[in-house]
Amino acid sequence: MIINHPLLGPRDAAEFVYLGDASLIDRPDGEQDGAAAAFHTYQYLRDNPAGPHEELWFHEQGDRSWLVVTRDTTTHEITHVRLARDVARERGRGQ
């Protein structure tokens, strides 16, 4: 697989480390009511779709940036790549 890095261009997927579903960006608030249940859902449960999947890849052998890659799990085709930083900021996380 070739991941089209937004800053570096096309890179071999072997340069990256895979973390999992991009929903891992949406860490729950540990102070809220029912935080234990929310963290259980966040940490352990997955949609695991057969089809387009937004997922986190870390460019360990490169610029060490985190990417959100949209990839079809039935064909391995990558349709969209963004910096995870930009995705997280859009969702109102971090500064």
């Binding site: 579903d21 859902t41 352990y44 449960l45 997955r46 949609d47 695991n48 779709p49 057969a50 799990t73």
Partner: peptide, 18 residues
């Protein structure tokens, strides 16, 4: 292998990745 797909028919999410 396809557990998440089939169990989603019953509206269930699993602690599994394929």
């Amino acid at each position: 292998g396809s557990s998440s797909k089939v169990m989603s028919l019953a509206g269930l999410r699993l602690p599994i990745e394929s």
